[in-house]
Nucleic acid binder design. Structure first.
Length: 354
DNA sequence: CCAGAACTAGACAATAAGAT
DNA sequence: ATCTTATTGTCTAGTTCTGG
């Protein structure tokens, strides 16, 4: 492999065939002839491989047939007769903004939704005016409703669990749901006993239990914290634990930081930094005590939010500014006698005194 | 425009906590 | 002691952003 090739190799891709010696003309591969097994073992392997191929082909054809059946079964319905799923996971902000407007424009152009939504019929007892419940396609339904167009829908009888798993799979396949929306949906499903445990739920919808847990934690964040991000849809999976940990450490300080972040209208990454004390990784570390940092940490006259420095294993140090003094705090047990010279040396290096 | 850095969701393993 | 469940940390692979 060349140096350039090795340098360009992406993470996780260990093979690079670009520098392999070229095949000579004389050694050009012969035209492939169909493989014919000769031995008994070969015949058996071929039979197994053939059966697997056949099985895959049958499955593909079945899927195709199902799709055709569903497409043929799609019918235009009055969107007023359809209500959102009781497990509806869409935040109101998903029905606003440029993405939703683009979807609406597309549907308006086509005089209806080309891709059908899926609904299930409601039992008569529930169905006064409303006849159907959405399985998936909430945004397409809302767009048609707002445009006054009939919505193309496939109607299918489904149980609660099937409805839930289909809705979740569809949304995650399109990567269109935020961590917050997923968390709300998962939490509701668990609260209502649709699944006995988080693991069972994760297995049913084909999601990772760790991410289900993180999504639920995002949905359980206090309103003040969610408001700090402008929209709860901006909160990332990876931020769930640090935000929860910040609340656990010092709830009042975290909520105060969140309120200040909301007031200062910080971006999501800055709001995350202000609440957790973790500087955003992108764009470099926000320098402490500068105008930018002051804004990022609440700014505009409020007391600066202390900067936390993670030391691993749950330990952390904290830097506070009190007027003209800067105070470094950490658990006294963390620094043993032999550590003091190193700390003094580091302070001299940083603060420029001999 | 391109290479590298940074960020993300998802997967997996380890660990903690609670139940039996 | 063992099993089940939830949580956390780390890694991978793909995407997006940034600076030269």
């Amino acid at each position: 492999m060349s140096k350039a090739g090795a340098g360009k190799a992406r993470k996780g891709i260990g093979l690079d065939f670009t520098d392999l010696p070229p095949l000579s003309g004389a050694a050009a591969p012969p035209v492939a002839e169909p493989y014919r097994p000769v031995t008994g073992l070969g015949l058996m392997s071929a039979a197994v491989a053939g059966a697997q191929e056949l099985e895959q082909r049958v499955q593909a054809l079945q899927a195709e047939a199902e799709q055709l059946r569903q497409e043929r079964g799609a019918q235009p319905l009055d969107p007023m007769l359809i209500r959102a799923s009781r497990w509806a996971n869409r935040h109101e902000l998903s029905f606003a903004g440029p993405d939703f407007e683009a979807l609406k424009a597309e549907i308006a152009d086509a005089r209806g939704n080309v891709q059908p939504i899926k609904v299930r019929p409601l039992p008569q007892a529930q169905a006064d005016r409303v006849r159907y419940e959405i399985v998936f396609g909430h945004r397409r339904h809302r767009a048609c409703l707002e445009l006054g167009l009939p919505v193309l829908a496939v109607v299918q009888e489904l149980g609660d669990r099937d409805l839930f798993t289909e809705m979740d799979r569809e949304n995650r396949a399109r990567k269109s749901l935020s961590a917050y929306e997923q968390g709300l949906m998962y939490r509701r499903a668990l609260e209502e006993g649709l699944f006995p445990s988080l693991r069972m739920l994760a297995a049913a919808v084909g999601a990772d239990a760790g991410n289900v847990s993180r999504a639920i934690r995002v949905a359980e964040l206090p309103t003040e914290v969610l408001a700090a991000f402008g929209s709860p849809l901006e909160v990332q999976f990876a931020w769930a634990s640090p935000l929860a940990a910040a609340l656990e450490r010092d709830r009042e300080a975290a909520l105060a930081a969140a309120r200040q972040a909301a007031q200062a209208r910080l971006g999501p990454a800055q709001a995350y930094a202000a609440i957790t004390g973790k500087a955003p990784r992108r764009g470099g570390v926000v320098p402490y005590n500068t105008p930018v940092a002051t804004a990022a940490r609440g700014g505009q006259g409020g007391a600066p939010v202390p900067r936390r420095i993670s030391l691993g294993r749950g330990a952390y140090a904290q830097v506070r500014v009190h007027g003209a003094r800067t105070v470094l705090e950490f658990d006294s047990g963390l620094l043993e006698a032999e550590g003091w010279p190193a700390l003094e040396k580091a302070l001299r290096a940083v603060l420029g005194r001999k």
